[in-house]
Design a protein around this nucleic acid. Structure first.
Length: 484
RNA sequence: GGCGGUAUCGUCUAGGGGACUAGGACGGAGCCCUCUCAAGGCUCAAACACGGGUUCGAAUCCCGUUACCGCUACCA
């Protein structure tokens, strides 16, 4: 047996295309990717589509899209497990040849019955190996007669153990591992057979996957050994749970990577957040770029405990990444969202690019998601704004007084020779003083007049972004609305 | 039931025998800044599951208990 070369690790992500790319899957893919990138190895992708009934083209596409969005590129061609069944079968037959497996004629129905009986008697069921005691000549006759049968692995006595990268040593007494099926009666391979056959063929040196696969590992190691193949190393990552401590599932809401994409989460934030679920760089490091993570990634930081997925922290993380990026970097993600929301068009954004980019810079500071930016951007694009009832109730209490104030504000602004922050600030603060009030008492009603909202960037930035003409127009309109 | 895994604030975690009065972050409460909201700064509340060992000394090592999770198919 040769020892695999661990200096140039080869890892793979092997999802089954039966839905979308789950955040747990994304996390597992990310760790495999990080490890490969960190150590100069390869990250491969294998689609486990042997279950024809459940696998779909759409799911496969969704996995590709999800990985692409996260920025996880893979090396070499994608392997589709479904097209490897010939080799799976050959390897299963090899197991038979070397005496590591035997033919079993027990039918699924019989097995089911015995299982139920055992359960009723409160006994644990394990295949009793009765077919392994069959007379060889008889087996040959039944095979020749075309009697359907499966191939079962004959688990030898002893203990199967390995040094897991995250759990250290894990050991299973072989007596607790039943003689598992490797090839179905229709000649198709069972999961564990297909996985090992493929991992050997793909020369995988590190199998990194969720710890729900721990109990599959002894079976797989047994197959490697019977096949005389070099063992890869194994790393079993902790599960991701929902806020209620249960395994993350649909009832927890958004569980697909794509869901977060559509919520306006940045890929860099998603990846950063996912990386912290099951791994820690040590110390206080939290906000990291992909480059940081590659540099910092280490198997020593792999954690054992299941982590709860906290959407609140994801949002915060997204805000951090939002402020890390400049408007030019954000633009490719914000623009489609603005257009999709029907607020503007690509042409307009292109025409007023300078203006648009500074608007994004203003907005991103107080946004946690791309969607937040879109929501806040509306008043700067559309012609007619809507007035937030709550804002109106609070700051436009007295209609006539508000109208009078707005008109006075507009007059003062309109009289300005230049439309700049210092000029506007001087004028408005002077107005406040003359009227014996505070600047805030003028700014808030004005803010609503300009944006319809009680929340916005600084009032002078808003005035600047809107421009003189549009600003004065809005104030005039608002004065009319306020009296009603 | 059997087998396997896990156990530090509500959550993500730092911690790898003395540096622990257990640190950081999210979330929560409050204050500052301030034209609003964010951002930022500061403060507060909040945890070593339990019981035995080992040791001069244990959040850290060992054993047990408990709880939780996973697997237990001719699914993957």
């Amino acid at each position: 047996m040769t020892s695999p070369d661990h200096t140039r690790p080869r890892l793979r992500f092997a999802p089954s295309p039966t839905g979308y790319l789950h955040v747990g899957g994304g996390r597992t893919a990310l760790f495999n990717w990080l490890y490969a990138r960190k150590y100069g190895g390869q990250f491969l992708l294998r689609i486990e589509d042997t279950d024809k009934a459940r696998s779909t083209e759409e799911s496969t596409a969704a996995i590709f899209e999800g990985l692409a969005w996260l920025g996880l590129d893979y090396d070499e061609e994608v392997v589709h497990q479904g097209s490897q069944v010939e080799r799976h079968r050959t390897d299963a037959m090899k197991l038979l040849e070397v005496g590591a497996a035997y033919r079993c004629f027990c039918t699924a129905a019989e097995l089911d019955e015995r299982r139920k009986a055992a359960e009723a008697a409160k006994e644990s069921f394990k295949y009793d190996r009765r077919c392994d005691r069959l007379d060889p000549a008889q087996v040959e006759r039944r095979v020749a007669a075309g009697e359907p049968h499966v191939i079962r692995f004959r688990v030898p006595p002893g203990t199967t153990e390995w040094d897991d990268l995250v759990h250290d040593r894990i050991a299973f007494p072989n007596k607790d591992v039943e003689d598992f099926v490797v090839l179905r009666s229709d000649g198709t391979p069972i999961y564990n057979m297909a996985v090992v056959s493929d991992d050997i063929a793909m020369r995988i040196t590190l199998v990194m996957r969720g710890d729900d696969h721990i109990s599959n590992t002894p079976k797989q190691i047994l197959i490697y050994q019977a096949l005389g193949a070099a063992l890869p190393r194994f790393a079993h990552l902790p599960m991701i749970h929902g806020t209620d401590g249960k395994k993350l599932s649909k009832r927890h809401g958004a569980t697909a990577v794509a869901d977060y994409q559509h919520m306006g989460i940045l890929p860099s934030a998603m990846v950063n957040f996912l990386a912290l679920l099951g791994w820690s760089p040590g110390g206080d490091r939290e906000v990291m770029t992909m480059g940081d993570m590659i540099a910092l990634f280490s198997e020593d930081g792999l954690l054992r405990k299941a982590a709860v997925f906290d959407p609140k922290k994801l949002e915060w993380m997204n805000g951090q990444h939002l402020s890390l990026m400049n408007s030019a970097q954000l633009e490719p993600m914000v623009s489609p969202a603005l257009v999709a929301a029907g607020i503007t068009t690509d042409e307009e954004l292109h025409k007023r690019r300078e203006w648009y980019l500074s608007l994004v810079d203003l907005l991103r500071v107080r946004a946690r998601t791309i969607d937040d930016i879109v929501r806040q951007a509306r008043p700067y694009f559309v012609l007619d704004i809507e007035y937030d009832p709550e804002a109106v109730a609070k700051h436009w209490k007295d209609g006539p007084a508000t109208a009078e104030l707005l008109t006075a504000t507009a007059e003062r602004l309109g009289a300005l020779t230049e439309w700049t922050t210092p000029a506007m600030e001087e004028g408005l603060r002077a107005l406040a003083e003359e009227r014996g009030t505070t600047a805030g008492k003028i700014f808030q009603p004005l803010r609503i007049a300009l944006t319809g909202l009680s929340v916005s960037p600084g009032i002078f930035d808003v005035l600047l972004m809107l421009g003189r003409e549009r600003s004065l127009e809005r104030i005039a309109t608002a004065a009319g609305v306020a009296t009603r």
